[in-house]
Design a protein around this nucleic acid. Structure first.
Length: 255
DNA sequence: ATGGTTGAGAATCAA
C-alpha cells in the first residue's frame, strides 16, 4: 500500500503531471492540496480513467483538497466540527482499514500577521479534531501541506530563515502538539538526515540550488508504525516543465 | 526590508 501527498498548486494546470505521476508511481491513495477548483469542475472522469475514485472539497481560486484512491472512500468529513470556515483545507475519509485526513495547513504569510493568528488557531482546532479521530480510528494517516518545517534539518538555511513564517516556535509547537497525540512523522522513521525537501520557491532558481523546505508530511498513528516500510520524496515531478512548487511525498505501508 | 516567480483572473491577492 503506497500513500502519497502532493500540493499541486492548481489541479487544472497540473492534471497532466498528476496523471503522469499516477502512472509512474502507482500510489493507492493520494492526498492533494491547492486544487483551486470548484467541486463542479473537479476532473472526475480523467481520474476515473486513471483508475482512481475521488473525493474533494474545493473552492474557486484558492485552497481546495482532494483524496484519490483505488478503493471507495467512506465516511467523508469536509469541515472541522464546530469551526465555520469557508476555506477548504481539510478532508477526511476512510479507505479500506485506514482513516485518512488530508490537510492544507494555513500558510500564515508572516509572523504577527492576522493570517498567522488564524493559522495557530486553525492548528489548535485541527489537533482537537485529530485527537477524536485517533480515538475512533487507530489506523490514522494525517498528511498534507503542513506549511511548517518540523525542525532545522528541514530548512536549507536555518540561520537565514531564523524564526520566520514556517519555522517560528509557535508554529512548531502547534505541529508538536499534533505529533504528541501519537502521530509519527513517517519520513523521519527512515531518514534522519538534512537536505531532504518537498518545496522549493519558484524564485531565485531555488530548486536547482536545492534551497528548499520539508513542509509536506505524512503522519501515522502508533498502530501503523510497525507497518511502515519506506518513505520518500519524489523530486522527479519538480523537474518537469511548468511544475508545482511542491513535489510528491510517499509512504509505503505493509497492510 | 525588498525582490524574484507562479496561478487565478483581470488589478491585485496568495503563496
Amino acid at each position: 500500500m503506497k500513500i502519497a501527498s502532493w500540493n499541486v498548486n492548481s489541479l487544472k494546470v497540473r492534471l497532466p503531471h498528476l496523471t503522469q505521476w499516477l502512472a509512474d508511481a502507482q500510489p493507492d491513495i493520494v492526498a492533494l492540496q491547492e486544487t483551486k477548483l470548484e467541486d463542479a469542475k473537479f476532473p472526475v472522469d480523467e481520474l476515473a480513467a486513471a483508475g482512481y475514485r475521488a473525493v474533494y472539497s474545493g473552492q474557486k481560486t484558492y485552497n481546495g483538497v482532494a483524496i484519490l484512491a483505488r478503493d471507495e472512500p467512506r465516511d467523508i468529513i469536509t469541515d472541522i466540527p464546530g469551526l465555520d470556515d469557508p476555506q477548504r483545507r481539510i478532508l477526511a475519509a476512510s479507505i479500506g482499514n485506514l482513516r485518512v485526513v488530508d490537510l492544507y495547513v494555513v500558510n500564515g504569510k508572516a509572523v504577527g500577521d492576522e493570517k498567522y493568528a488564524y493559522k495557530l488557531d486553525w492548528l489548535a482546532k485541527v489537533r482537537e479534531f485529530l485527537a477524536h479521530e485517533l480515538e475512533r480510528y487507530p489506523n490514522l494517516v494525517v498528511l498534507g501541506d503542513f506549511n511548517i518545517c518540523p525542525d532545522d534539518r528541514d530548512v536549507y538555511d536555518p540561520v537565514a530563515w531564523g524564526e520566520d513564517i514556517l519555522c517560528s516556535p509557535p508554529e512548531r509547537a502547534g505541529l508538536k502538539a499534533i505529533t504528541d497525540l501519537g502521530l509519527h512523522d513517517s519520513f523521519r522513521l527512515f531518514e534522519p538526515g538534512a537536505e531532504h525537501y518537498s518545496w522549493w520557491d519558484y524564485r531565485q532558481a531555488a530548486f536547482r540550488r536545492n534551497m528548499g523546505l520539508r513542509i509536506d508530511l505524512i503522519l501515522i498513528g502508533e498502530a501503523l508504525k510497525s507497518a511502515a516500510t519506506a518513505a520518500a520524496i519524489d523530486r522527479e515531478p519538480r523537474r518537469w516543465e511548468r511544475p508545482s512548487d511542491h513535489t510528491p511525498v510517499t509512504l509505503e505501508l505493509d497492510i
